[in-house]
Amino acid sequence: MTMEQWVYPSVYVKEDDFREGRVLYTTWQPRLFYAWDRGTAIGRFLAELKQGRIVGRRCRRCRRVVVPPRMFCEHCFRPNDEWVPLADTGTVITFSRCYITWDMRRLEHPQIPAVIAIDGASPGVGFLHHLGEVDPEAVHIGMKVKAVWKPADQREGAITDILYFKPMTE
């Protein structure tokens, strides 16, 4: 006796079945508009980005400096202690070359998302952003990069106030 008899043959529908009216359906677009509070730590982080600065938070007990900032240390489970100005440079700790969009359309030129460990934060600690002004094939883990900012008058207090990070000339 094998498990085969306990598999129910569910009914497979093809995309054509919708187009050609063989299967009935209904569609719905929920009105998912949200207004999220930025919160204490991220509110400050974004306000500093608008000024062209990256800031983190330090925990005096474990001495970690973290970015994105939060108002508590999740290791020590206590409030962390102070704001720390960080550099707008860092190191690529991982990256991808992405040839598709979220709705699976093909991109001719890849986006290069990367996690960038920010100089001045603890080792290996950073945030997600794009790389730019770089040959996609030349990107490597360990590459030193620097933020390219939007012009000051166009910044709005958002992660996109940094356009991307580009390689530092060595």
């Binding site: 991982t94 992405c98 969009t101 979220w102 996690v115 997600l128």
Partner: peptide
């Protein structure tokens, strides 16, 4: 606030873990 404005798709995070 910090990631979706960058226009991500799901594969980014796994591609970057695989690369690491």
């Amino acid at each position: 606030i910090l990631e979706r404005p960058l226009g991500p798709n799901l594969l980014w995070i796994f591609a970057m873990e695989m690369n690491a």
